[in-house]
Design a protein around this nucleic acid. Structure first.
Lengths: 203, 203, 203, 203
DNA sequence: TATGAATGAGTATTCATTCAT
DNA sequence: GATGAATGAATACTCATTCAT
């Protein structure tokens, strides 16, 4: 029971995922839907509103990838499943990933629309909640959950941003393995333990 | 003694940093420079070549920020100075950072132009070289330098991508402090040591 | 009840017949029609398609001039009526004649579009068919109909090409008479009969 | 001892012969010559004057092909050599042929410039002179030399116009043979002799 | 709900030409 | 003789949007 409105949205997404923002024109969308360009205005008052919905859907999809992680039994497993599902998401929908995490068009939207900010915050809070659990169970060091969450999300976004941009030229299989090795590095640290030395140098 | 050619370049950058790629039109650039739109073509054969130069300048600037790090005395200091200068760069030129690390327009350029790939590779190799030194001096754990480099660059890009996108709403001062705390976390790891457990869960 | 689409076509023709291909610009056409330049694109997807239609109309008109010749009773009359109608065509629509027989723009179109080639072939085949009849009835010498057709068409095109170009500066009436005298010459030959001599010289 | 002026002319010709009139731009010519676009204006006051000279050269070349025919011993041989050299010309320089016999740009020039008309008249008169000779020697029927000349030139132009336009798709060798067969047909006529019948039908 | 027609602003780019040097 | 800088008009074409139906 998908209304024309939904079909327009889906095709906009399609079009965006295929050609990027520059390929997202009302006419192309309309032709993909099979209606006239002007018909879109029946459902969305202008391009901005339409694109707004597209982004909203993007966040929704991402969230739907993550949520099942909550069904795992232990905090540790919930944490790792979250990482795994986030990996699945970017592997399944690389341009989706771009849409919500990389594109500046999206960031402009985020800056101007509170509802999208809320959506985007969900993923962040989801990470934070998982991390919090791990700290509480003693699996993670005592730390500030939000900041750890920021670190993990940063690494995730930066990592796949490089990959999608072609700056980590590996096969899908290799990139997955590298992803997990990177996770492991963040878990255990890359430096031989000498926090004292570091503090001194870092001032 | 800046020639028109240089002024065009500077204004293109300005225009790009202000409005993004969508706002980068020959006419707008020209009006910013104060010449006719067609006069640009005397200096750059087309928009692509002009944008290419803009990006090239971006990479150049970034590289110029990093290079002085090599003058430090020890591998550790060279490593931390690299991180510090990278921080300076993004603080001084946040939209520049976007230009070379985030914008997909740039990635398209990278995909098609070997010279830019080379430029972009420099920063990666620079990181790798610093890390390699730290491993050799025993300051870092034995590890694959390129992969550690990828992790650090990922975190850097993702972190400031979030910040610039407004998803880490902090003051300049706070973000710098958070940056260093994140570095420290990567150094020492976020998990209580139990690699065995991790391996089991992560399969 | 001529739609805007038809008016555009007519004005394109007008514009072309007036200024040649170099004067055939979307803007000029639009201003002639009395609509905005972009409105044309509602009806023709681009200049090429529009010009394609103009040419197609040209061939159509030409064919419509010739066809009635088939209604004559004898092969001879059908042949001469064909020549007469071809004359009428070029007299009524000299720039039309140019469009389909002279302009290299048209030839480019012909080279790239099979449908136009088909249209253009019609006139040739029409001639050939008329000639074939005349050979069969014994009115023409035994000969290769296609080659005779090529000769007649060549003469026709070259003759009026010269006329339109102003290199045969005569009145309309005079040019018609000269046309028929030229036809007569082709019919009966210009040389005193001495094929043997010719063969010798021509090797 | 070719001055820059001559080189510009040669390159304009080159450019024209290569890309047609639409490809004949001052900038392209200049780059071909190896000078700046504005330097052309030292030698030709504008594009029109330059193109004028190009056409003039075209006629000159054509004439140079024909002239040696006068050195034959008999009127008949001079006539056939003329036809042969005209064939050579179009085979050697098909785009040249186009320039002076087909292009409407040239015709516009002819219409506006007496000197070109004079040049163009030379070829016509040359034909006429050859034909006149043949009539006087009794090799051709008694006839109006100028009109016979027009017929021959018409056939020549139309024939190769079709060939160059791709409407007589034959090999170079075949087209030459067809050319001579067409000449033979014009010599001896295509109709079985029955001028009376013709006169009746043609009224 | 939807369409077809139309618009005006905008896109990159090419061109012949002028002018100061 | 020649150049480099610049211009203004023109090119085809795309776009989001409006309006009458």
């Amino acid at each position: 029971m998908s209304s024309t409105k939904d079909i327009i949205l889906a095709c906009s997404l399609d079009q965006y995922l295929q050609d990027g923002y520059r390929g997202l024109s009302m006419r192309k969308i309309a032709s993909k839907v099979g209606i006239s360009a002007t018909a879109i205005y029946r459902h969305y008052s202008n391009k901005e509103e339409l694109f707004h919905q597209v982004i909203k859907n993007g966040f929704g999809t991402y969230t739907n990838y993550l949520l099942p992680a909550t069904q795992e039994e232990t905090a540790e497993k919930r944490f790792y499943k979250t990482l795994e599902y986030a990996l699945d998401f970017v592997m399944d929908h690389p341009r989706y990933f771009e849409l919500i995490f990389v594109k500046s068009d999206t960031k402009d939207e985020l800056a101007n629309h509170n509802d999208l900010r809320k959506d985007s915050k969900i993923s962040f809070d989801f990470y934070t909640a998982r991390i919090n659990e791990c700290i509480e169970t003693g699996y993670f060091k005592e730390d500030h959950p939000g900041e750890v969450s920021a670190l993990l999300l940063s690494s995730y976004i930066g990592f796949f941003s490089l990959y999608i941009g072609g700056l980590l030229p590996r096969s899908k299989k290799e990139i997955k393995q590298l992803y997990w090795r990177s996770v492991e590095r963040i878990m255990s640290g890359i430096a031989v333990d000498s926090a004292a030395t570091r503090n001194e140098i870092m001032k």
